[in-house]
Simulated assay, not measured.
Amino acid sequence: MKKYENLFSPITIKNMTVRNRIAMLPMGTNFGGQNGEFLEDHIKYYEQRAKGGTGLIIVENACVDFPLGSNGTTQIRLNEDRFIPALYNLTDRLHKQGACVAVQINHAGASAVPSRIGAQPVSSSNIPSKTGGAVPRPLTKEEIENIAQKYAEAARRAQIAGFDAVELHAGHSYLISQFLSPLYNDRTDEFGGSPENRARFCRLVIDKTIEQVGPNFPIILRLSADELLEGGNTLEDTLHILEYLNDGIDIFSVSCALNDSLYYQIDSMYLEDGWRAYMAEAVKKKFNKPVIAMGNIRNPKVAEEILASGKADFIGMGRGLIAEPNWAVKVESGKEDTLRKCISCNIGCAGHRIGLNRPIRCSVNPDLITEDGYKKEKLQNL
Protein backbone atom coordinates (compact mmCIF):
# COMPACT_ATOMS: atom_id res chain seq x y z
CA MET A 1 0.00 0.00 0.00
CA LYS A 2 1.28 3.45 -0.92
CA LYS A 3 2.03 5.82 1.92
CA TYR A 4 -0.33 8.37 0.39
CA GLU A 5 -2.80 6.06 -1.30
CA ASN A 6 -5.62 8.60 -1.65
CA LEU A 7 -3.39 11.46 -2.77
CA PHE A 8 -2.03 9.43 -5.67
CA SER A 9 -5.17 7.66 -6.86
CA PRO A 10 -6.70 8.68 -10.22
CA ILE A 11 -10.17 10.16 -10.58
CA THR A 12 -12.46 10.43 -13.62
CA ILE A 13 -14.96 13.27 -14.06
CA LYS A 14 -16.91 13.08 -17.32
CA ASN A 15 -14.30 12.90 -20.12
CA MET A 16 -11.39 13.89 -17.87
CA THR A 17 -9.23 11.37 -15.97
CA VAL A 18 -6.75 13.00 -13.59
CA ARG A 19 -3.71 10.95 -12.53
CA ASN A 20 -3.75 12.09 -8.89
CA ARG A 21 -5.61 14.42 -6.54
CA ILE A 22 -3.21 17.36 -6.66
CA ALA A 23 -4.66 20.43 -8.37
CA MET A 24 -2.67 23.57 -9.11
CA LEU A 25 -4.93 26.51 -8.31
CA PRO A 26 -5.21 29.46 -10.72
CA MET A 27 -2.91 32.31 -9.72
CA GLY A 28 -2.16 35.43 -11.72
CA THR A 29 1.49 35.75 -12.75
CA ASN A 30 1.89 38.84 -14.96
CA PHE A 31 3.83 36.54 -17.30
CA GLY A 32 1.45 37.24 -20.19
CA GLY A 33 2.27 39.44 -23.15
CA GLN A 34 1.23 43.08 -23.40
CA ASN A 35 -1.75 42.13 -25.59
CA GLY A 36 -2.89 39.17 -23.51
CA GLU A 37 -1.02 36.50 -25.45
CA PHE A 38 0.61 33.42 -23.93
CA LEU A 39 4.42 33.56 -24.21
CA GLU A 40 7.08 30.83 -24.17
CA ASP A 41 8.35 31.50 -20.64
CA HIS A 42 4.76 31.40 -19.43
CA ILE A 43 4.35 27.94 -20.96
CA LYS A 44 7.61 26.79 -19.35
CA TYR A 45 6.34 27.94 -15.95
CA TYR A 46 3.31 25.64 -16.18
CA GLU A 47 5.33 22.90 -17.87
CA GLN A 48 7.59 22.66 -14.81
CA ARG A 49 4.56 21.96 -12.61
CA ALA A 50 3.28 19.31 -15.05
CA LYS A 51 6.70 17.62 -15.14
CA GLY A 52 6.62 17.73 -11.35
CA GLY A 53 3.62 15.40 -11.28
CA THR A 54 0.70 17.77 -10.68
CA GLY A 55 -2.52 16.02 -11.70
CA LEU A 56 -4.75 18.96 -12.67
CA ILE A 57 -3.35 22.35 -13.59
CA ILE A 58 -5.90 25.17 -13.56
CA VAL A 59 -4.39 28.00 -15.57
CA GLU A 60 -4.76 31.53 -14.21
CA ASN A 61 -7.79 33.67 -14.99
CA ALA A 62 -8.31 34.59 -18.62
CA CYS A 63 -10.29 37.69 -19.58
CA VAL A 64 -13.61 37.11 -21.34
CA ASP A 65 -14.45 40.77 -22.05
CA PHE A 66 -11.56 43.07 -22.94
CA PRO A 67 -10.83 45.70 -21.76
CA LEU A 68 -13.87 46.14 -19.48
CA GLY A 69 -13.40 42.87 -17.60
CA SER A 70 -9.62 42.75 -17.44
CA ASN A 71 -7.72 42.13 -14.24
CA GLY A 72 -3.97 42.41 -13.84
CA THR A 73 -1.28 44.25 -15.73
CA THR A 74 -0.70 41.58 -18.40
CA GLN A 75 -3.65 39.23 -18.04
CA ILE A 76 -4.10 36.44 -20.57
CA ARG A 77 -7.19 36.60 -22.75
CA LEU A 78 -9.79 34.30 -24.30
CA ASN A 79 -12.10 36.91 -25.75
CA GLU A 80 -10.96 36.35 -29.36
CA ASP A 81 -10.09 33.35 -31.53
CA ARG A 82 -6.56 34.65 -32.13
CA PHE A 83 -5.53 33.50 -28.65
CA ILE A 84 -6.34 29.84 -29.37
CA PRO A 85 -3.08 28.74 -31.11
CA ALA A 86 -0.72 29.68 -28.26
CA LEU A 87 -3.07 28.15 -25.71
CA TYR A 88 -3.20 24.95 -27.76
CA ASN A 89 0.60 24.88 -27.62
CA LEU A 90 0.33 25.16 -23.83
CA THR A 91 -2.21 22.34 -23.41
CA ASP A 92 -0.35 20.08 -25.82
CA ARG A 93 2.88 20.42 -23.89
CA LEU A 94 1.25 19.91 -20.50
CA HIS A 95 -0.63 16.85 -21.77
CA LYS A 96 2.69 15.36 -22.91
CA GLN A 97 3.81 15.57 -19.27
CA GLY A 98 0.71 13.66 -18.13
CA ALA A 99 -1.25 16.54 -16.62
CA CYS A 100 -4.86 17.50 -17.21
CA VAL A 101 -5.39 21.20 -17.86
CA ALA A 102 -8.26 23.58 -17.12
CA VAL A 103 -8.41 27.34 -17.48
CA GLN A 104 -10.23 29.83 -15.32
CA ILE A 105 -12.33 32.38 -17.21
CA ASN A 106 -13.28 35.60 -15.53
CA HIS A 107 -14.65 39.13 -15.68
CA ALA A 108 -13.23 41.52 -13.08
CA GLY A 109 -16.31 43.73 -12.86
CA ALA A 110 -15.81 46.40 -10.20
CA SER A 111 -12.35 45.01 -9.42
CA ALA A 112 -11.05 46.34 -12.74
CA VAL A 113 -8.77 49.38 -12.43
CA PRO A 114 -10.21 52.42 -14.30
CA SER A 115 -6.80 53.68 -15.47
CA ARG A 116 -6.08 50.29 -17.07
CA ILE A 117 -9.41 49.75 -18.78
CA GLY A 118 -9.96 53.39 -19.74
CA ALA A 119 -13.54 53.40 -18.44
CA GLN A 120 -15.68 53.21 -15.34
CA PRO A 121 -15.82 49.59 -14.11
CA VAL A 122 -19.15 47.72 -14.15
CA SER A 123 -20.87 45.59 -11.54
CA SER A 124 -24.22 44.43 -10.23
CA SER A 125 -24.63 47.77 -8.42
CA ASN A 126 -22.68 50.96 -7.77
CA ILE A 127 -20.79 49.50 -4.78
CA PRO A 128 -16.96 49.30 -4.91
CA SER A 129 -15.39 45.83 -4.70
CA LYS A 130 -13.15 46.94 -1.84
CA THR A 131 -12.86 49.75 0.66
CA GLY A 132 -11.65 52.81 -1.22
CA GLY A 133 -12.11 51.15 -4.62
CA ALA A 134 -13.56 52.69 -7.76
CA VAL A 135 -17.33 53.20 -7.88
CA PRO A 136 -18.74 51.01 -10.69
CA ARG A 137 -21.87 51.53 -12.74
CA PRO A 138 -24.65 48.91 -12.61
CA LEU A 139 -24.99 46.70 -15.68
CA THR A 140 -28.16 46.78 -17.73
CA LYS A 141 -30.08 43.56 -18.38
CA GLU A 142 -28.91 43.56 -22.00
CA GLU A 143 -25.28 43.93 -20.88
CA ILE A 144 -25.72 41.08 -18.38
CA GLU A 145 -26.94 38.80 -21.19
CA ASN A 146 -24.07 39.85 -23.45
CA ILE A 147 -21.40 39.24 -20.79
CA ALA A 148 -22.85 35.81 -19.97
CA GLN A 149 -22.54 34.96 -23.67
CA LYS A 150 -18.92 36.14 -23.65
CA TYR A 151 -18.14 33.71 -20.81
CA ALA A 152 -19.68 30.92 -22.87
CA GLU A 153 -17.78 31.81 -26.03
CA ALA A 154 -14.53 31.95 -24.06
CA ALA A 155 -15.28 28.46 -22.69
CA ARG A 156 -15.77 27.18 -26.24
CA ARG A 157 -12.41 28.66 -27.26
CA ALA A 158 -10.83 26.91 -24.26
CA GLN A 159 -12.32 23.62 -25.40
CA ILE A 160 -10.97 24.14 -28.94
CA ALA A 161 -7.55 25.02 -27.46
CA GLY A 162 -7.35 21.57 -25.87
CA PHE A 163 -8.24 22.29 -22.27
CA ASP A 164 -9.84 19.39 -20.40
CA ALA A 165 -12.18 21.58 -18.35
CA VAL A 166 -13.09 25.19 -17.71
CA GLU A 167 -13.40 27.00 -14.39
CA LEU A 168 -15.90 29.81 -13.83
CA HIS A 169 -14.68 32.24 -11.18
CA ALA A 170 -17.61 33.05 -8.90
CA GLY A 171 -15.66 34.24 -5.87
CA HIS A 172 -13.06 36.73 -4.63
CA SER A 173 -14.97 39.94 -5.45
CA TYR A 174 -15.02 39.48 -9.22
CA LEU A 175 -18.13 40.04 -11.34
CA ILE A 176 -20.09 36.85 -10.61
CA SER A 177 -19.24 37.27 -6.93
CA GLN A 178 -20.52 40.84 -7.14
CA PHE A 179 -23.92 39.49 -8.12
CA LEU A 180 -23.90 36.64 -5.55
CA SER A 181 -22.90 38.72 -2.54
CA PRO A 182 -25.38 40.94 -0.66
CA LEU A 183 -22.41 43.19 0.14
CA TYR A 184 -22.23 44.24 -3.51
CA ASN A 185 -25.68 43.55 -4.94
CA ASP A 186 -28.51 45.91 -4.04
CA ARG A 187 -30.46 45.50 -7.28
CA THR A 188 -34.25 45.41 -7.14
CA ASP A 189 -34.87 43.56 -10.42
CA GLU A 190 -34.68 39.80 -11.11
CA PHE A 191 -30.87 39.88 -10.63
CA GLY A 192 -30.97 41.13 -7.03
CA GLY A 193 -32.62 40.62 -3.69
CA SER A 194 -33.32 36.96 -2.91
CA PRO A 195 -30.60 34.26 -3.09
CA GLU A 196 -32.25 32.87 -6.22
CA ASN A 197 -32.18 36.27 -7.91
CA ARG A 198 -28.57 36.93 -6.91
CA ALA A 199 -27.65 33.54 -8.37
CA ARG A 200 -29.42 34.28 -11.66
CA PHE A 201 -26.42 35.80 -13.47
CA CYS A 202 -24.18 32.90 -12.49
CA ARG A 203 -26.90 30.48 -13.62
CA LEU A 204 -27.09 32.29 -16.94
CA VAL A 205 -23.33 31.95 -17.41
CA ILE A 206 -23.48 28.23 -16.61
CA ASP A 207 -26.38 27.53 -18.97
CA LYS A 208 -24.84 29.45 -21.87
CA THR A 209 -21.50 27.71 -21.25
CA ILE A 210 -23.09 24.26 -21.42
CA GLU A 211 -24.75 25.26 -24.70
CA GLN A 212 -21.32 26.06 -26.11
CA VAL A 213 -19.22 23.16 -24.78
CA GLY A 214 -21.78 20.34 -24.59
CA PRO A 215 -22.70 18.00 -21.73
CA ASN A 216 -19.41 16.07 -21.42
CA PHE A 217 -16.96 18.93 -20.84
CA PRO A 218 -16.36 19.41 -17.09
CA ILE A 219 -17.26 22.77 -15.58
CA ILE A 220 -15.59 23.85 -12.34
CA LEU A 221 -17.10 26.59 -10.17
CA ARG A 222 -14.75 28.51 -7.90
CA LEU A 223 -16.57 30.18 -5.06
CA SER A 224 -16.07 32.11 -1.86
CA ALA A 225 -17.92 29.66 0.37
CA ASP A 226 -17.73 32.04 3.33
CA GLU A 227 -17.07 35.71 2.59
CA LEU A 228 -15.86 36.20 6.17
CA LEU A 229 -17.24 39.73 6.38
CA GLU A 230 -20.17 41.05 8.38
CA GLY A 231 -23.24 41.14 6.15
CA GLY A 232 -21.66 38.89 3.52
CA ASN A 233 -22.58 35.34 2.56
CA THR A 234 -21.87 32.80 5.27
CA LEU A 235 -21.15 29.14 4.49
CA GLU A 236 -24.82 28.33 5.10
CA ASP A 237 -25.89 31.14 2.76
CA THR A 238 -23.62 29.83 0.03
CA LEU A 239 -24.90 26.27 0.41
CA HIS A 240 -28.39 27.65 -0.21
CA ILE A 241 -27.26 29.67 -3.26
CA LEU A 242 -25.58 26.60 -4.74
CA GLU A 243 -28.93 24.83 -4.86
CA TYR A 244 -29.70 27.04 -7.87
CA LEU A 245 -26.37 26.26 -9.56
CA ASN A 246 -25.50 22.71 -8.61
CA ASP A 247 -26.97 20.78 -11.55
CA GLY A 248 -24.74 22.61 -14.04
CA ILE A 249 -21.48 22.11 -12.14
CA ASP A 250 -19.13 19.09 -12.10
CA ILE A 251 -16.47 20.23 -9.58
CA PHE A 252 -16.69 22.83 -6.81
CA SER A 253 -13.45 24.66 -6.03
CA VAL A 254 -14.10 25.82 -2.49
CA SER A 255 -12.26 29.00 -1.59
CA CYS A 256 -13.33 31.84 0.71
CA ALA A 257 -13.21 35.57 1.39
CA LEU A 258 -13.53 38.80 -0.60
CA ASN A 259 -11.22 41.75 -1.23
CA ASP A 260 -11.75 43.17 2.25
CA SER A 261 -10.96 39.81 3.85
CA LEU A 262 -7.97 39.11 1.60
CA TYR A 263 -5.83 37.73 4.43
CA TYR A 264 -8.09 34.66 4.44
CA GLN A 265 -8.22 34.37 0.65
CA ILE A 266 -4.42 34.52 0.25
CA ASP A 267 -3.81 32.75 3.53
CA SER A 268 -1.65 34.41 6.15
CA MET A 269 1.26 32.28 7.33
CA TYR A 270 -0.17 31.81 10.84
CA LEU A 271 -3.20 29.89 9.51
CA GLU A 272 -2.66 26.17 9.93
CA ASP A 273 -2.47 23.67 7.08
CA GLY A 274 -5.88 22.81 5.67
CA TRP A 275 -7.69 25.22 7.99
CA ARG A 276 -10.61 25.75 5.60
CA ALA A 277 -11.17 22.13 4.54
CA TYR A 278 -14.41 22.18 6.55
CA MET A 279 -15.90 24.44 3.89
CA ALA A 280 -15.15 21.94 1.11
CA GLU A 281 -16.52 19.17 3.32
CA ALA A 282 -19.82 21.03 3.77
CA VAL A 283 -20.24 21.48 0.00
CA LYS A 284 -19.37 17.83 -0.66
CA LYS A 285 -21.77 16.56 1.99
CA LYS A 286 -24.66 18.57 0.60
CA PHE A 287 -24.18 18.01 -3.12
CA ASN A 288 -22.14 14.78 -3.30
CA LYS A 289 -19.93 16.11 -6.09
CA PRO A 290 -16.14 16.36 -6.43
CA VAL A 291 -14.72 19.28 -4.50
CA ILE A 292 -11.32 20.93 -4.26
CA ALA A 293 -10.11 21.80 -0.75
CA MET A 294 -7.45 24.45 -0.24
CA GLY A 295 -5.87 26.70 2.37
CA ASN A 296 -2.16 26.52 3.28
CA ILE A 297 -2.01 22.78 2.51
CA ARG A 298 1.74 22.14 2.51
CA ASN A 299 2.11 18.99 4.61
CA PRO A 300 1.36 15.81 2.60
CA LYS A 301 0.06 14.10 5.73
CA VAL A 302 -2.60 16.80 6.10
CA ALA A 303 -3.46 16.46 2.40
CA GLU A 304 -3.89 12.69 2.71
CA GLU A 305 -6.05 13.03 5.83
CA ILE A 306 -8.39 15.47 4.09
CA LEU A 307 -8.90 13.00 1.24
CA ALA A 308 -9.06 9.88 3.43
CA SER A 309 -11.70 11.40 5.67
CA GLY A 310 -13.89 12.26 2.69
CA LYS A 311 -13.72 16.03 3.14
CA ALA A 312 -12.61 16.60 -0.45
CA ASP A 313 -11.61 14.90 -3.70
CA PHE A 314 -8.75 17.19 -4.72
CA ILE A 315 -6.09 19.07 -2.79
CA GLY A 316 -5.73 22.56 -4.21
CA MET A 317 -2.23 23.99 -4.02
CA GLY A 318 -1.30 27.47 -5.14
CA ARG A 319 1.75 29.12 -3.70
CA GLY A 320 3.10 25.71 -2.66
CA LEU A 321 3.56 24.82 -6.33
CA ILE A 322 5.20 28.15 -7.08
CA ALA A 323 7.73 27.29 -4.40
CA GLU A 324 8.05 23.60 -5.29
CA PRO A 325 7.04 22.54 -8.82
CA ASN A 326 8.07 18.94 -8.06
CA TRP A 327 5.87 18.59 -4.98
CA ALA A 328 3.92 15.60 -6.32
CA VAL A 329 6.92 13.66 -7.63
CA LYS A 330 8.91 14.20 -4.46
CA VAL A 331 6.08 13.15 -2.15
CA GLU A 332 5.16 10.09 -4.20
CA SER A 333 8.80 8.94 -4.38
CA GLY A 334 9.39 9.32 -0.64
CA LYS A 335 11.55 12.43 -0.87
CA GLU A 336 9.46 14.66 1.36
CA ASP A 337 12.57 15.85 3.17
CA THR A 338 13.73 17.58 -0.02
CA LEU A 339 10.57 19.65 -0.51
CA ARG A 340 11.09 23.35 -0.97
CA LYS A 341 8.31 24.57 1.30
CA CYS A 342 6.19 27.66 0.82
CA ILE A 343 6.36 29.94 3.86
CA SER A 344 3.19 31.92 2.97
CA CYS A 345 5.13 35.18 3.03
CA ASN A 346 3.11 36.57 0.07
CA ILE A 347 6.01 38.79 -0.97
CA GLY A 348 6.99 37.62 -4.44
CA CYS A 349 3.67 36.12 -5.52
CA ALA A 350 0.92 38.38 -4.15
CA GLY A 351 3.07 41.41 -3.32
CA HIS A 352 4.82 41.62 -6.67
CA ARG A 353 1.69 41.04 -8.75
CA ILE A 354 -1.02 42.84 -6.79
CA GLY A 355 0.99 45.53 -5.02
CA LEU A 356 3.69 46.34 -7.59
CA ASN A 357 2.28 45.11 -10.95
CA ARG A 358 5.41 43.03 -11.54
CA PRO A 359 5.78 39.42 -12.70
CA ILE A 360 5.60 37.06 -9.74
CA ARG A 361 8.67 35.83 -7.87
CA CYS A 362 9.18 33.51 -4.89
CA SER A 363 11.19 34.00 -1.71
CA VAL A 364 12.27 30.34 -1.59
CA ASN A 365 12.43 29.47 -5.32
CA PRO A 366 14.86 31.60 -7.35
CA ASP A 367 13.75 30.27 -10.76
CA LEU A 368 10.06 29.79 -11.55
CA ILE A 369 10.57 29.27 -15.29
CA THR A 370 13.41 26.77 -15.81
CA GLU A 371 13.72 25.42 -12.26
CA ASP A 372 17.52 25.04 -12.06
CA GLY A 373 18.56 27.73 -14.51
CA TYR A 374 19.85 29.89 -11.67
CA LYS A 375 22.53 27.28 -10.89
CA LYS A 376 24.07 27.63 -14.36
CA GLU A 377 23.94 31.40 -14.07
CA LYS A 378 25.84 31.23 -10.82
CA LEU A 379 28.57 29.07 -12.32
CA GLN A 380 28.98 31.39 -15.29
CA ASN A 381 29.46 34.36 -12.98
CA LEU A 382 32.23 32.79 -10.91
Rank of each mutant, 00 (worst) to 15 (best):
P10E: 12
I13G: 12
M16D: 07
M27D: 10
T29Q: 13
G33N: 11
N35R: 06
E40V: 07
I43P: 07
E47C: 10
Q48N: 12
G52N: 01
G55M: 07
V64H: 09
D65R: 05
T74S: 10
T74H: 14
Q75T: 08
R77P: 04
D81P: 09
D81N: 14
P85C: 03
D92K: 13
L94R: 09
K96A: 15
K96D: 11
N106S: 12
H107Y: 08
A110Q: 00
V113Q: 05
I117P: 01
G118N: 07
P121W: 00
P128N: 04
P136C: 00
T140R: 01
E142V: 03
I147M: 04
K150V: 02
Y151I: 03
A152P: 14
R157Q: 11
I160W: 04
A161Q: 08
A170C: 12
S173P: 02
S173T: 14
F179G: 08
T188C: 04
D189I: 08
S194W: 11
R203A: 12
L204S: 13
S224L: 01
S224Q: 01
A225F: 10
L229K: 05
L229M: 13
L229T: 14
G232D: 03
L239V: 02
N246G: 02
D247T: 15
G248H: 11
S253N: 15
Q265P: 00
Q265V: 03
D273R: 07
G274A: 12
A277C: 10
Y278H: 09
Y278C: 00
N288G: 02
K289T: 09
P290Y: 04
V291S: 02
V291G: 00
I292C: 08
N296R: 15
N299W: 04
N299G: 03
E305I: 12
E305D: 15
I306M: 10
I306D: 11
A308C: 06
S309N: 15
K311L: 07
A312G: 03
F314D: 01
A323P: 06
N326S: 09
A328P: 00
A328W: 08
V329K: 11
E332R: 13
D337C: 04
T338Y: 04
L339I: 11
C342P: 06
H352Y: 15
G355W: 07
P359D: 12
P366K: 03
I369S: 07
I369R: 07
T370N: 14
G373W: 07
Y374T: 04
Y374I: 08
K376E: 14
K378D: 08
Q380R: 15
L382V: 11
L382E: 13
